[in-house]
């Protein structure tokens, strides 16, 4: 198996890794919601939140370079927004440039939107990286189930997670076989090859699903999956929750005084 890229770092050990997944899920969701709600003009709040996230990333002992690289996922979206910025016509003009035939003028309103979106998106993605790199996926699923996600979805997700590794292996083998047979040529031909590969993969996956179901039936599956592990909400979770809540509320408190 060559897919270490799935679920990296989530089996390490740190105070953050040891927290209950529910604590982390609720904290992340609250963090993201508040970051999205705060207007960018309160930039002090963003500085506080950034330092909060950076502190947690340091405590969790995640490699900084890995976190930075991961956070670049939002880059294509940022680029797309940036392209549309000059088209916001309202507001004072910050500067205008001649690019070949077009006259492009950029307004402060447009720049504000870009700053707003980029800073919010970056904070949110950092918190999401923190969540998913410190919690095993199976733990996350347990947390989601206890937080009210439908049982069926959680079961399907846990199966999906198991078989992702198997099917990703399968795809990698198929790709290797394809590449060793001189893959290339006209674009339509390439797409046809990929279509055939995905079709084969579908048939194999479907048949695998049926075999798995038969094997489960043979072992007495009745629609219920029982697990021995229980989640437990510890004192550390309560402390973390209170501290995190205070940190989230701190910009509002600072504004009051």
């Amino acid at each position: 198996m060559k897919h270490s890229f799935l679920d990296q770092y989530s089996d390490r050990d740190s105070p953050i890794h040891r927290l209950d997944p529910r604590t982390k899920l609720v904290a992340s969701l609250a963090f993201i919601l508040i970051v999205v709600l705060i207007p960018i003009v309160n930039w002090q709040a963003f500085v506080i939140y950034l330092s909060l996230i950076v502190a947690l990333l340091i405590i969790s002992k995640l490699p900084p370079l890995y976190v930075l690289k991961r956070s670049l996922v939002i880059f294509p979206f940022v680029l797309m927004i940036a392209i549309f910025i000059p088209f916001f016509k309202s507001g004072e003009i910050a500067g205008s440039y001649n690019i070949w035939l077009w006259r492009v003028s950029i307004s402060y309103d447009g720049l504000l939107i870009l700053a707003n979106v980029v800073s919010k998106a970056w904070l949110c993605i950092l918190s999401l990286i923190l969540l998913s790199s410190t919690t095993k996926f199976t733990e996350l699923l347990k947390g989601l189930k206890r937080l009210g996600m439908p049982r069926m979805i959680v079961l399907i997700l846990s199966f999906m997670y198991r078989y992702i590794f198997v099917l990703v292996d399968e795809v990698m083998r198929m790709r290797q076989a394809r590449d060793s047979r001189n893959f290339g040529g006209a674009r339509l031909r390439q797409l046809k090859t990929i279509g055939n590969m995905i079709g084969t993969l579908f048939i194999r996956s479907y048949e695998r699903g049926e075999r798995i179901y038969a094997a489960m039936l043979a072992r007495g599956f009745d629609g219920e999956v029982r697990s021995l592990q229980r989640l437990n909400f510890k004192k550390a979770d309560a402390c973390f929750g209170i501290a995190f809540g205070l940190a989230l509320a701190s910009p509002a408190i600072l504004l009051l005084f």
Binding site: F159, M160, Y161, R162, L167, L201, S205, Y206
Partner: peptide
């Protein structure tokens, strides 16, 4: 459960 799980993994792959 098993079928949807495996087919979701299929789309992912």
């Amino acid at each position: 459960v098993p079928l949807m799980g495996v087919l979701a993994a299929f789309i992912f792959a």
